[in-house]
Write a protein that binds this DNA or RNA. Structure first.
Lengths: 132, 132
DNA sequence: TTCCTTGCAAATCGTTTGCATAATG
DNA sequence: CATTATGCAAACGATTTGCAAGGAA
């Protein structure tokens, strides 16, 4: 199965490249439809899945029942806002440190970990009801 | 909405209590059906959701597309085997430590985090193909 | 011309929900 | 009797898939 060029796939990739907010398949679909009014959701999913399998993008499961996609594939940690549901990147030092504490208590082989934080994003935190 | 006793709910709870392997709704269903042959998957889901909302059990989303349930609600970290898909508990010190490194770089408000590790479980690690 | 990719619709999977009936308090 | 819980089946939302037609190599 050799890969062939497709303008739709390119558009999906280009769109993700410009976004830092971890869009869902539907968000990609709605956007790419500006350029390709006939594109189908199925095609978007097929390309997202393909790109994710190639390792060109990553697919995030953040517990909200919808997959999010990220053009940034280097290992990093996400933050999910409990109020507005937005997803952003978290700047952390040494995500590998998280591994260390676990490894020593386990006799299987740990390959990695998946982590996200949740709480109020800067904007929602700003606008939160004051306690008095 | 006061809670009323139900033998089905009790059976669901009892079953979870005996398990450390984080069963899915379907696994609960298939087991409880021994005792209640007419119980429906819907009832199992309703009770699992109810118990989770009451905080008596916890519902885990581990990225495999199926919810897992855990009678142990104290905050702890899970391990998912990449090969056999089994889910087990990981003994770690201070899961709260994971928070610290992130907090200082973020101007929203972090409430908590969700983490699981993946790799080869002890059994799969034991039986893995040798490199020579 | 080969065979990968698309659009469309139907299918799948896990989970939820509406409704009439059964069980609990 | 008032109300919650059940079984059943239909509904749901996200994602995948079969198929015939279109496009790239």
């Amino acid at each position: 199965m050799t890969l062939k060029y497709s303008r739709q796939r390119e558009a999906v990739k280009q769109f993700l490249m410009t976004r830092r907010d971890h869009p869902t398949a539907d968000m990609v679909y709605r956007h790419v439809r500006n350029e390709f009014p006939n594109i189908s959701l199925g095609t978007v999913y097929r390309n997202l899945t393909l790109l994710a399998n190639l390792g060109e993008i990553s697919r995030l499961r953040l517990g909200d029942g919808v997959d999010h996609f990220d053009y940034d594939t280097h290992p990093h940690i996400h933050f999910v806002c409990s109020r507005c549901k937005s997803v952003s990147d978290l700047e952390t030092e040494e995500t590998s440190l998280i591994n260390e504490s676990a490894v020593k208590h386990f006799d299987g082989q740990i390959e990695g970990h998946f982590t996200y934080f949740y709480g109020l994003c800067p904007r929602c935190n700003e606008n939160r009801p004051k306690s008095r």
